[in-house]
Design a protein around this nucleic acid. Structure first.
Length: 354
DNA sequence: AACCCGGGGCG
DNA sequence: CGCCCAGGGTT
């Protein structure tokens, strides 16, 4: 890359961004805390989904201090549906560190900000450049895709080592006068123009500098090796209502998938020798007089699929429950953060019974 | 370096 | 329905 090429690329990118950028809530502020929150949410979810979550979250927790002192259950309820719940916990842990050890000022250098829980190389660079105007790289999947095409980088982006190549490329190209617009411009380009499939090259502000476009290879980049196969778990869940109207919930293990969240009692299929209802009733030590299928759906994420069916059941008598089970009033359930598949069961059940 | 962690969207 | 997307933490 010669100096003229670099200058022309960053000028074209930054002016395009300033001109065309989408009007997003977190682009109205330079508050490092709010930028931080938005970046954590955007790591896992598309912009359109994040917007309402971000608005509610900032309204409820407008400052570092308010989030630091938040009750965890309430925090997770705000996060409900976003997934990756450990990131909400890590975000709060990081925010607490800032309040307690940095006088409520988010650090403005990579070394210190990277010590915060949940702040990795990407988030560090994003907050530093966007909130503080520090010329630091913020390489995410969008940036790797854009640069692999622009500079015809053929390394496998699935390999951890490869990210360093892109970080160095960003540090060479970055606009030191406006690192915020430069980094956001790369990501915006990846989001709206330089998309994974069918990139809109004819609308691209840096098309004339794009090596892959010149060679007609933009659809072949980036190179990425395939990921692993999906595991399938078929589950059946039941909604058990006691005579006093309370509902039985079970707490998930403290580690692993959806750690510590509450769900309806469920068993993995197939069950042999007994019906699903009998198996569940036996396992949880309860009795049921009827069960009826009300909903079926599946829940997908990168390496696992649940196929769940919900049953409703009626409790005749309470026996000794497993230690991780508890009766909740219907009101209490509304304040309980739950996985989306469990929520769907609950909403379907309510629609039929309340 | 490999694996784990949700949920949504697309063809 | 199969497939893709993605950054940080843990092992």
């Amino acid at each position: 890359m010669n100096d003229l090429y670099k200058k022309e690329v960053r000028t074209a990118l930054v002016s395009w961004f300033e001109e065309e950028k989408r009007d997003l809530p977190w682009r109205k502020t330079k508050d490092p805390y709010k930028i931080w929150v938005s970046e954590v949410m955007l790591q896992q979810t598309k912009v359109d989904t994040v917007i309402p979550y971000y608005e509610r979250f900032i309204a409820k927790y407008p400052s570092l201090e308010s989030l630091a002192s938040a009750e965890e259950g309430e925090l997770l309820k705000e996060w409900e549906g976003l997934g990756y719940y450990s990131r909400a916990r890590n975000l709060q842990a990081g925010v607490k560190e800032v309040v307690e050890s940095y006088g409520s000022v988010v650090p403005s250098n990579r070394k210190e900000i990277s010590k915060l829980k949940g702040v990795g190389p990407y988030t560090a660079g994003a907050v530093l450049s966007i909130a503080y105007g520090v010329p630091e790289h913020a390489v995410d999947g969008n940036v790797m895709r854009v640069l692999s095409r622009l500079l015809l980088i053929k390394e496998d982006i699935a390999k951890p080592k490869t990210k360093k190549i892109f970080e160095e490329a960003v540090m060479e190209l970055i606009d030191k006068e406006n690192p915020s617009a430069f980094n956001q411009g790369l990501m915006e380009l990846g989001a709206v123009i330089c998309t994974p499939t069918k990139p809109k090259c004819l609308l691209c502000p840096v098309r004339e500098y794009c090596t892959a476009f010149f060679e007609g290879k933009q659809e072949e980049l980036p190179i990425k090796t395939i990921n692993k196969k999906t595991k399938i778990h078929k589950m059946k869940a039941i909604v058990v209502e006691a005579k006093d109207g309370r509902i039985l919930l079970e707490k998930r293990p403290s580690k692993g998938l959806l750690a510590n969240l509450w769900q309806f009692p469920m068993v993995e299929l197939p069950t042999n020798s007994h019906s699903v209802e009998e198996t569940i009733a036996h396992y949880y030590g309860i009795s049921m007089i009827k069960s009826e299928e009300i909903i079926a759906f599946k829940h997908i994420f990168s390496h696992l699929v649940w196929e769940m069916e919900s049953y409703e059941a009626l409790l005749i008598e309470e026996n000794n429950l497993p230690a991780n089970c508890k009766w909740f009033t219907k009101e209490e359930i509304e304040y309980q953060p739950m996985p989306v598949p469990v929520l769907k069961i609950w909403n379907a059940w309510k629609e039929r019974n309340l």
